[in-house]
Design a protein around this nucleic acid. Structure first.
Lengths: 254, 254
DNA sequence: GACAGGCTATTGGTCCAACAATATGGTCGC
DNA sequence: GCGACCATATTGTTGGACCAATAGCCTGTC
């Protein structure tokens, strides 16, 4: 076996790390894209002269990056799961329990209030109509949970108008916490019609491209919602998206 | 009550995924921090009733997150290598999907341009002076890397004025990628004085509480920086951010 | 020919038992 | 006291084994 030891950034390190690079190179050299399948673990082992366990650890790394999704009897198929992967990175890095709910609500406030300019500049009439539709669903909710989900859906739809994946992913990451806050708030003070109305005003401000009104309305809306959330909400532990769901679960079938 | 993942609880995910969660829980429950060492692989295996290979794959995932740094004969020590981890993450992504960098810059644009209102309302004169000081360091930079770091420091200081931990955490999370973008930009067009001047104008706008000017200046500043970043940023490898250096190897010395 | 149902082989998932490399810590000789 | 040396514990790597699931073939019925 060649040792490939070189002053070249000391990359020879471990067999697993080498294998990670080799597999990534393989993907690139073969110009593989989403949907293609990698050689089997046993074949990769033979190809790179590494044991299957080593290959598996390398694949585990690549899998953590969200690049592959191993399927039994098929092989590791190239995937574009980087959104889930980055959420897992988020979850692993940030101990959400240490970031207070006030911080998260404050974050929302900063984002959502100030996103107005961007939306006003870019959103089409059709998109605003779609927003109206989402908002209309709120009052059809059967229980508090559903209402919270619909409420969240509206705010998420708003974020999506900003057309930035990083932003959407951040919100998706925070969704369990935000939903929790909304659920608690609505349990204490279930006024779906008011929420719907406030959302409606916000949409109207967007339609007339009145950024001042938007800022004011959104700001008021968020403050209002927060007013009915008890201070000791901090103690309620919520688990954000934990690492592990690199596959299955998501029902994004066509 | 729990939102649990649809059908069945926990059993659905693989043994490795379960182990990842268990280890992360272990770290959290024992309130372990950087420098502490995890139980040995065999102990973890006994603890969770999993084979050593399973434990190792789980550790490999956590290692990919940059949370641990296994040392022979010592054990896996808690580490804070998320910067390298994120860099590796994006480096791996770039080979396949090429839109991430634009997403990040777009995200910055949304955040930084719109944060102005918030800062104008809350920042004290002393804080703005401190900002000036940070900005002054830019032109003292010896090399491109340092300049990028100083540039980032300024924008980070700006974010901190918003006084929101979630926001700061998000920026810290993205910092390796942002630094990379900045480094590439400055390598191509090293004009530190222009950067300093642009920052100065932004601070001035904050001082006079001119939110219109701030928006315009910040927007122009970010667009300007982005203009000199090549489209094929993926191929521009500054520092080999390839997987492998989760440990030592990288020069701690001069 | 078409469809249904069962069979088989392939593949990932997990486990086991070793050996290699290496750093730690203790022990011995001086 | 101190340095050389060795035992030992731990991760790194290997080769193999078995299991569960299932894609695709094979067969049989209509």
């Amino acid at each position: 076996m060649e040792q490939e030891v070189a002053e070249d950034a000391g990359v020879s390190s471990s067999a697993v790390d080498q294998t990670v690079r080799q597999i990534l190179d393989l993907i690139r050299n073969r110009a593989m894209s989403v949907g293609d399948v990698l050689p089997t673990e046993r074949e990769l082992g033979e190809l790179f002269g590494a044991s299957r366990n080593t290959i598996r650890e390398a694949l585990r790394t690549i899998r953590t990056y969200g690049l592959i999704d191993p399927k039994p009897r098929v092989g590791a198929v190239l995937a574009d799961r980087h959104d889930i992967a980055i959420q897992n990175f988020f979850a692993a890095q940030m101990d959400i329990s240490r970031t207070s709910f006030n911080d998260i609500q404050g974050f929302r406030r900063i984002i959502e209030v100030s996103i107005g300019d961007h939306i006003i500049l870019n959103a089409s009439a059709a998109e605003l109509d779609a927003l109206d539709e989402v908002n209309g669903l709120i009052e059809t909710s059967k229980d508090v949970q559903e209402a919270a989900q619909r409420d969240f859906d509206f705010h998420m739809a708003l974020m999506k108008l900003a057309d930035n994946r990083m932003l959407v992913q951040t919100y998706q990451f925070l969704s369990p916490v935000i939903l929790h806050i909304m659920t608690v708030g609505k349990s204490i003070r279930p006024v779906l019609s008011e929420t719907r109305h406030a959302h409606g005003e916000i949409i109207a401000a967007l339609r007339t491209r009145d950024r001042i009104a938007y800022s004011y309305l959104m700001s008021r809306h968020l403050d209002f919602g927060l007013r009915f959330v008890p201070d000791d909400l901090e103690n309620t532990r919520i688990s954000p998206a934990m690492p592990g769901q690199t596959s299955s679960k998501d029902s994004d079938n066509a």
